[in-house]
């Protein structure tokens, strides 16, 4: 067995035995090749189901929102950043968590197991930013010369080309909302697309309604998205939904020097006022 899996099971088993946590959330092996499933172990025996491999693509921070128990959670770099977000946004408190950090060397693309998935290829936070214990030595972070080359390629298009690109991106959307539900940021009790009084968005397969959903969902993630890629991992139609959030991540970095989920003592830029904030847009 893989030593990382071994170590994760050992730590999880210990903290359950010691009564430090009520449950540990991690990944178990899936029933079809190249899949895993989020799994909760409540007893030391159940930790034997935990595994760690290249297919742990979802973000486990999604499973701790609003929980009251003491939770052990296995966190790769991006999961840990979303845990930071959750703490900052009061979705869970730091004392409830025992974070088992897992240095990550990138997850596999869901269709090409030999390749890194897109967001992992440009990731610069492979090591957990917050943890109680590490399951292995940190890995070396990637140096990316131009992490936003894809966004720049779209920025360089003329406006009609941009529009047809985005129309094309969303043409296969079936509105299953897997992108939203897999996202740890999307925890609103009622999403704006589900609101029925008033109803903000039409609910059918009208392309403008679909575009409205994606455009606004992305904007709700501004300054919060960690580019963990759970949305794309979840999408049954393989839509590149990160095309929207990546632009916002680039803007956050350029306008505010901000990358989400790195520090539990800092408020996100759209949540605070600073006299130095860029304000060219106000007349």
């Amino acid at each position: 067995m893989d030593s990382l899996t071994q170590k994760i099971r050992e730590i999880a088993s210990n903290i359950l035995k010691e009564g430090r946590v009520d449950m540990v959330i991690g990944f178990a092996k899936g029933t079809i090749p190249m899949t895993t499933k989020p799994y909760m172990a409540r007893t030391p025996e159940q930790v034997e189901n935990f595994i760690w491999d290249k297919n742990c693509t979802l973000n486990l921070a999604n499973y701790i929102t609003g929980r009251k128990e003491k939770i052990g959670i296995i966190a790769k770099g991006c999961d840990s950043r979303n845990i930071v977000n959750h703490i900052v946004e009061n979705k869970i408190s730091r004392d409830q968590l025992y974070i088992i950090g897992v240095p990550c060397s990138g997850m596999a693309d869901k269709h090409n197991p030999d390749e890194l998935r897109d967001n992992c290829a440009t990731c610069t936070h492979r090591n957990p930013v917050i943890f109680d214990v590490m399951a292995a030595e940190p890995v070396e972070e990637q140096k990316i010369d131009d992490p936003f080359a894809d966004v720049k390629a779209v920025e360089a298009m003329d406006k009609d080309a941009k529009w047809s690109y985005f129309e094309g991106l969303l043409q296969n959307c079936i509105r299953c909302y897997a992108c939203r539900n897999a996202c740890p940021l999307c925890y609103c009790p009622t999403c704006f697309v589900d609101e029925s009084g008033p109803q903000w968005v039409g609910k059918g397969q009208n392309k403008t309604d679909i575009q409205t959903f994606h455009f606004l969902r992305a904007f709700h993630c501004a300054g919060r998205c960690t580019d963990c890629g759970a949305c794309e991992a979840a999408c049954p139609m393989d839509i590149h939904v990160r095309a929207f959030t990546r632009k916002l991540n680039k803007d956050s970095l350029e306008l505010f020097g901000w990358e989400a989920g790195l520090d539990i003592t800092k408020r996100p830029p759209l949540d605070t006022f600073n006299p130095d904030d860029p304000n060219d847009f106000i007349k």
Partner: peptide, 17 residues
């Protein structure tokens, strides 16, 4: 900016104090 990114004219959204 996101408006502009998807091919809308950014001038359609203006802010003033």
């Amino acid at each position: 900016n996101l408006f502009e990114h998807i091919g809308m004219e950014k001038e359609r959204l203006q802010f003033s104090w």
